[in-house]
Amino acid sequence: MELENHPRVNSIEMRSSGGILRYLAFPAIVIFVLATSYFSYAPSKEQLLTPLIFFAVFGIAFALERAYPFMPAWNGNWRANRQDGIFFLIAQPVLAIAEALALSLGVSLATHLSSSFAHTLWPTSAHIALQVILALLVHDFLPYWYHRLSHQSSGWLWHIHAIHHAPTRMYSLNFVRFHPINSFVSSFLMLLPLVALGVPGPVIFMVAIIGKTHSMLSHTNFDFRLGPLNWIFSMAELHRWHHARDMRLANANYAATMIFWDILFGTRHLPQEDIRQTELGIVNQASVPKSLWDQLCLRRPQSLR
């Protein structure tokens, strides 16, 4: 049976249709985030601006997936989403520690590098747009390899990362469902090279905000359509395949924000099939315990020890 004539797909399409909003939502949100972070930035306001922008985007994402769910069953309810909310709360102090350590070590490295080369390595005189694009590429590089190694490992790296892939549905709060070790390492690797290279504060702030926004939207249960932008961003149309249960599909699209490193290293993959006809999650669901405490303690079922 042709996919477009499949009754289940047609039923889902009718319920998930967002019309032209499917094409405009992502660029509009990105423009809003970039403009807000650029025109409002000040070092003294950073601690206030970050949560304000984050919760504004989360409110938009939540409204989109409730009004026009890509897959209605993925939204769940409060009881089903509660564990992800706890992961979000746990992540905040972990991220703060990772960023503080990355900042401290990065400043030391920046001082050493600038004295070694007699000038800063970052093109601070370049246009702000070019600096943001370059910084996003730097921001994604080390986490790309950490993420890729986590998938290619059959040991503890995958055991830690599998917590993020265990859910069989995707919605906006999924993006914070990471073990604290995973959150710490990714955040540290994102920020350290930016500080070490001497990237200006406003650029780092814009990159951090767009990174968090992109991560949330790439998991949001709304039918984002990017068209040619799928060759620039690692957004929902690509990232949903990364959560497929079939690891031949999931071991691709590792980049956090821009898809550049996946293109360069041959790991970008966007099948023609409909992801709604593919199961999400991991092959061995029993390898990730249901209990939040057991997940945090990285306990493995007795049969897998």
Rank of each mutant, 00 (worst) to 15 (best):
F188K: 03
F188P: 03
F188E: 09
L189S: 03
L191T: 01
P193C: 02
P193A: 05
V195G: 10
A196W: 13
L197A: 15
L197Q: 13
G198Y: 07
V199F: 12
P200Q: 01
G201Q: 15
G201P: 13
P202D: 12
P202G: 10
P202S: 12
I204A: 05
I204S: 04
F205V: 03
F205S: 05
F205P: 11
F205H: 10
F205N: 06
V207L: 12
V207W: 01
V207P: 13
V207Q: 07
A208K: 02
I209W: 01
I210V: 15
K212S: 15
S215H: 10
S215C: 05
S215R: 10
S215T: 14
L217F: 11
S218T: 13
H219I: 07
H219K: 08
N221C: 03
D223E: 09
F224T: 03
R225G: 11
G227I: 12
G227M: 06
G227S: 10
P228A: 07
P228G: 04
P228H: 11
L229I: 03
W231M: 14
S234I: 02
M235L: 14
H239Y: 06
H239M: 05
R240Y: 13
W241Q: 00
H242W: 12
H242M: 11
H242C: 11
H243C: 02
A244C: 08
R245M: 13
R248P: 02
R248T: 12
R248S: 12
L249T: 05
L249K: 14
A250L: 06
A250I: 08
A252L: 05
A252G: 01
Y254K: 07
Y254F: 15
A256V: 05
M258Q: 02
I259A: 12
I259H: 05
F260G: 01
W261E: 05
D262W: 00
I263P: 03
I263V: 13
L264G: 00
F265H: 10
F265W: 08
G266E: 04
R268P: 05
R268C: 06
R268M: 14
H269M: 09
H269V: 02
L270M: 13
L270W: 04
P271T: 00
P271H: 02
D274I: 04
I275V: 14
I275P: 05
I275A: 07
I275N: 06
I275R: 09
R276K: 09
Q277S: 11
Q277V: 07
T278E: 13
E279A: 15
L280W: 06
L280V: 09
L280C: 10
G281D: 01
G281Q: 03
I282F: 11
V283M: 09
V283C: 08
N284F: 06
S287T: 09
S287L: 09
V288Y: 07
P289W: 00
P289I: 10
S291W: 07
S291Q: 06
L292R: 07
W293H: 12
W293Y: 12
W293P: 07
Q295W: 06
